[in-house]
Every structure is written in structure tokens, then in C-alpha cells.
């Protein structure tokens, strides 16, 4: 249990460090609210598919850990890091991004088109998660599946699909802009 908590805290600290580093990099860029929103919006569009890929590739690590019979603390830490990333991505999907930016920039970054794209991403993620549930339901008819594994698969599929869809829509929207 202790190693889970350590992994969770490490994951959250890593995200916080990335946010602070990003803020530090922008310190010498004098930009208006609109310019900053444009700059950050484009960066978000590039980040979303990358985040989805990182998130989904973590599943390979989870599957490997499942096959590893020896239950080691490092495995727990890795799994809880996945949980930390899931929580952060869920927050990013359901709330405005760039929590350390000024309110005006954040409001502009969450304008009508972004909200529409994000909603579409969430709709896509929900459908994908439900389809995953249906597939798992059929699998359980032939083979028992651990409850924790199901949560892991459904959450990863739902969040991953939502991020990819949102990222793709954002990239399309930024094209030619």
C-alpha cells in the first residue's frame, strides 16, 4: 500500500514539475492575452496526441507487470503512476487546461470551439469505453476477468480515445489558422 502512495505522489510531483518548467520557459515571451492563448492552444493540440500515446503505451507496462508473478513494490509504484496520470488527464478533459495561467488566458483557451471539440472527445471516449465494456462482458463468458483489470482497461480506453479525438479535432481546427 505504501509503494502505491509513493508512486501516486511521484506522479503528481512529476506533473507539477513539468508545469513549473513550462511556465519558466515562457517567462521571457512578452505576449498579449490573445497571442498567448493562440500559442498555448497550438501547443495543447500538439500535446494531446503525445499524451494519449504515452498513456496508452503505459498499458504495455501494466500487462508485463501482470505476467510477472513476483509482486514487487516497483510494480505498485508503476501502477499508481498510471492512476496519477489518469486523474490528471481526467481533470484536463473535464476542466480548463493550463491551471497556472491567468484567468483571461484560460477563459480564451476554453472558448466555444474548444468546448465543442472537448465535448466531442468526451462523447467519443464514452462510446469507446462502453464498447470496451461490451467486449469484456463477452470475454467474461469464457474466462474470468479481474475487477481491477476491467477498471484499468475501461478507463485507459475511454480516456485514451477521448484524448486522441480531442487532439485530432484541435489539430484540424488549427490547420490553416
Amino acid at each position: 500500500m505504501k509503494s502505491f502512495t509513493i508512486g501516486l505522489v511521484l506522479g503528481l510531483v512529476a506533473v507539477l514539475a513539468i508545469a513549473v518548467a513550462m511556465k519558466w520557459r515562457q517567462r521571457n515571451l512578452p505576449m498579449s492575452v490573445a497571442e498567448k492563448a493562440e500559442y498555448l492552444g497550438k501547443r495543447r493540440a500538439r500535446m494531446l496526441p503525445a499524451l494519449a500515446i504515452i498513456y496508452i503505451t503505459q498499458q504495455a507496462s501494466y500487462i508485463t507487470l501482470q505476467q510477472d508473478a513476483a509482486h514487487r513494490a516497483v510494480n505498485d509504484a508503476k501502477i499508481s503512476a498510471w492512476l496519477a496520470l489518469s486523474i490528471i488527464l481526467l481533470l484536463a478533459l473535464s476542466a480548463k487546461w493550463f491551471w497556472f495561467e491567468r484567468k483571461e488566458v484560460r477563459d480564451l483557451l476554453d472558448d466555444e470551439n474548444t468546448r465543442a471539440n472537448r465535448s466531442d472527445g468526451m462523447r467519443f471516449g464514452f462510446i469507446f469505453a462502453m464498447l470496451t465494456c461490451i467486449v469484456i462482458y463477452f470475454i467474461t463468458m469464457f474466462e474470468p476477468v479481474n475487477g481491477r483489470d476491467v477498471v484499468h482497461i475501461v478507463m485507459s480506453d475511454g480516456l485514451g480515445a477521448a484524448l486522441i479525438r480531442w487532439g485530432w479535432l484541435e489539430r484540424v481546427a488549427h490547420r490553416d489558422a
Binding site: A34, E38, G41, D111, N113, A173, D176
Partner: peptide, 12 residues
């Protein structure tokens, strides 16, 4: 009070 992206997507 929106981003350029929104104007662009409406135009297109």
C-alpha cells in the same frame, strides 16, 4: 473574445 482558431473553423 474568442481565439483565431474559432473564427477560422467558422469561416471554413
Amino acid at each position: 473574445g474568442v481565439t483565431r482558431k474559432t473564427v477560422n473553423t467558422i469561416e471554413n
